[in-house]
C-alpha cells in the first residue's frame, strides 16, 4: 500500500505541477467553460477517486 500511495503522490504531483501555461492558451473551451478549470478540477477529482480506491479497505 505504501508503494502505491507514493506512486499516486507522484502522479498527483505531475498533474498539479505541470506547466499549465503551455497547455491552456484559450480562456473559453467546450460548452463555454474554461479548459484550465476543467483540467484542474478533473485532475483533482481523478486523484481523489484513486485515493478512495487505494485507501477504502479497512
Amino acid at each position: 500500500m505504501r508503494e502505491k500511495a507514493f506512486a499516486l503522490f507522484l502522479l498527483a504531483l505531475f498533474l498539479f505541477l505541470m506547466p499549465l501555461g503551455l497547455l491552456f492558451r484559450e480562456a473559453v473551451g467546450p460548452l463555454g467553460l474554461p479548459p484550465l478549470y476543467l483540467y484542474l478540477y478533473g485532475a483533482w477529482g481523478l486523484v481523489i477517486l484513486l485515493a478512495y480506491l487505494l485507501f477504502r479497505r479497512a
Binding site: 506547466p19 501555461g21 491552456f24 492558451r25 473559453v28 463555454g32
Partner: peptide, 28 residues
C-alpha cells in the same frame, strides 16, 4: 451562468488562464 458572458468582457479573460511565464509557473 457567468461563463458565456465572459466573452463580452475581455478584462475577465485572464482570470480563466493559467499564470503567465516562468515566474507565474514558479509561483504556482
Amino acid at each position: 451562468n457567468p461563463f458565456p458572458k465572459v466573452g463580452a468582457h475581455p478584462e475577465l479573460l485572464p482570470l480563466l488562464l493559467p499564470p503567465e511565464g516562468l515566474a507565474g509557473h514558479l509561483a504556482w
